[in-house]
Simulated assay, not measured.
Amino acid sequence: MKNFKSKYIPALAIMSSLILAGCDSDNDKDEEVIAPEVVTPVNVSYEVTITNLTNAQPLSPVAVILHDTGSLWTIGESASTALETMAEGGDNSELLALEIVNASVSGSAPLGSGATETLTVTIEEQTDSMLSLATMLVNTNDGFTGLSNIDLSGLSVGDTWSTYTSVYDAGTEGNSEAQGTIPGPADGGTGFEAERDDVDFVGMHSGVVSMDDGLATSVLTQAHKFDNPATYVVITRME
């Protein structure tokens, strides 16, 4: 038995060393670090072209917003303070700051009658966005036009979608057309007023009456009347 042990123990030691070495080799393979693939963010951009179709209703700076939840307004429901501020005074800053906004762009100046403006809004890696657009008809008390919750998911690069927009009434300020109540060039009056004195829900605008129609207290004339549509909008996916 002594000879047996002395003969085979060295061999067993060598085999054990080889087995352990093999285990270490496998562990080295398992612990090999693979560098993650670097993915370059993809921008999704939309070009939005707005044409003012009215006769004498300049539009406040246009707000274009991309979002995936919520809406800027709903027919039959009370306007948000952000929408009221825009619809009464043309200030779109509160709309652009809403929590639902993922990306936005604003026109730099009012858009005159017959004029066209193109804005580009870009968002990173999100093709399921909705687009909303809002702008005030500034020779009104609280009239506005725009688009709400337009689904862009079906647009591929180069695709174009177009539509006409109607005029809405924010329902936050009575349509008195009285001097001092309209912020546009027809009057140069007050814009946003926190107190609401109308129906307090968004609806379709019935139009203006004007002094030429017999409303002696109105500062508006026939030139400021409008019919739907108010604007023509073309949306093109650029990238």
Rank of each mutant, 00 (worst) to 15 (best):
K2E: 14
K5P: 05
K5W: 15
S6K: 12
S6Q: 14
Y8C: 03
I9V: 08
P10W: 10
A11H: 09
A11C: 04
A11F: 15
I14G: 07
S16Y: 11
S17N: 09
A21Q: 05
A21S: 10
D24Q: 14
N27W: 01
K29A: 10
K29P: 09
K29W: 01
D30H: 02
E32G: 13
E32A: 15
I34C: 06
I34N: 09
T40L: 06
P41H: 04
V42F: 04
N43R: 02
V44W: 00
S45G: 03
Y46A: 01
T49Q: 02
T49N: 03
I50V: 06
N52Y: 12
L53M: 02
T54K: 09
T54E: 01
N55R: 12
N55Q: 15
A56P: 06
Q57Y: 15
Q57C: 10
Q57S: 05
L59Y: 14
S60L: 13
L72E: 14
E77S: 14
A79F: 08
S80L: 00
T81Y: 11
T81A: 04
L83M: 11
E84K: 10
E84T: 09
E84P: 12
M86W: 08
E88R: 02
G89C: 03
G90C: 06
S93L: 04
L96S: 09
L96K: 14
L96G: 11
E99K: 12
A103T: 01
L111Q: 12
S113H: 12
T120R: 13
I123L: 10
E124F: 01
T127I: 05
T127E: 10
T127N: 06
S129L: 10
S132D: 06
T135I: 12
T135V: 12
L137E: 05
N139S: 09
N141A: 05
L147N: 08
L147I: 15
N149F: 14
D151N: 10
L152D: 11
S162E: 08
T163D: 07
T165D: 03
T172Q: 11
E173L: 07
G174L: 03
N175Y: 00
S176Q: 04
S176D: 11
E177D: 08
Q179G: 08
I182E: 06
I182H: 01
G184M: 02
G184S: 00
P185Y: 13
D187L: 06
T190W: 00
R196F: 05
D198T: 02
V202S: 02
G207E: 01
V208H: 01
S210M: 04
M211T: 14
G214K: 10
G214T: 05
L215E: 08
L215Q: 12
A216Q: 11
T217I: 14
S218T: 05
S218N: 12
V219N: 06
L220Q: 13
H224S: 06
H224N: 13
K225R: 08
F226Q: 00
D227P: 04
D227W: 07
N228D: 13
T231V: 15
T231P: 02
Y232C: 05
Y232A: 00
V234D: 08
